[in-house]
Amino acid sequence: MSAAARRAALATTGVLVLLAGAEAVGRAGIAGPSWPPLSEVAAHLLDADRRATVVRAASATLASAAEGLLAGVLVAAAAAFTGLLLPPLRPGLDRLAALLHAVPVIALAPLLITTVGREATPTVVAGLGAGFVMFVAFSSGLSLGGRRSTHDDVFDALGANRVRRLLRLQLPASVPTVLDGLTLAAPAAVLGATIGEWFGAPRGLGVLIVSAMQNFQVTLLWSAAACATALSLAAYGLTTALQRAAVRRMA
């Protein structure tokens, strides 16, 4: 068996053991009535009507997460480039980003609902989560404040100006790091959107989770959670593939 096949077999075995364990716990009722057997959750999702509810909610969450991710990437890029062009602003930008990241979402939520509204809160929370990671990725990718490399020496000796250095060295060199950040930011955006929906959004997986919890619809609750996890994993898988392709091309 090749190394890759062995790894895949191990991973599959691990997942199966985990699923079987969860099923066993549910069937035995060890964790009480709020832990259903996974087969019941699967049956819930196989029912067309019930599935439609979950899928509708999931697509709303996906839309918020995607918008938030895009906004986070754009704002983070703008902030990093501001730091690149105006070096005196760099420490301030770093601290502002760290501060925004340090404020708990639960403290920001009431503020967001009164300012941007219930509809937009999931997008903004997703953007905050993704934006911080992307700001760090852009900053380190463009090696702001990093040590000089021999590339910098060559570009200096060849008389490169700032724009040409940015286009020919810093931007291409930053691509793998930025995409590395994206593999963290994409699942963070899904998580952010789901949490943002808790604070009274009209639809989405977060809303479904809250209402299922309050009405003690255990299988619905687990279905929604499974769906959120699947979205998050898909976002991670997609961005990781993108990152690997870029590393093959750029390094």
Binding site: D153, A157, G159, P172, M250
Partner: peptide, 19 residues
């Protein structure tokens, strides 16, 4: 001289652009 692109340099590290 460097700014007018009249200098050529090669270091121990080749410093070629990998991409």
């Amino acid at each position: 001289l460097a700014r007018s692109h009249r200098l050529g340099v090669a270091f121990q590290e080749h410093a070629l652009l990998p991409w």
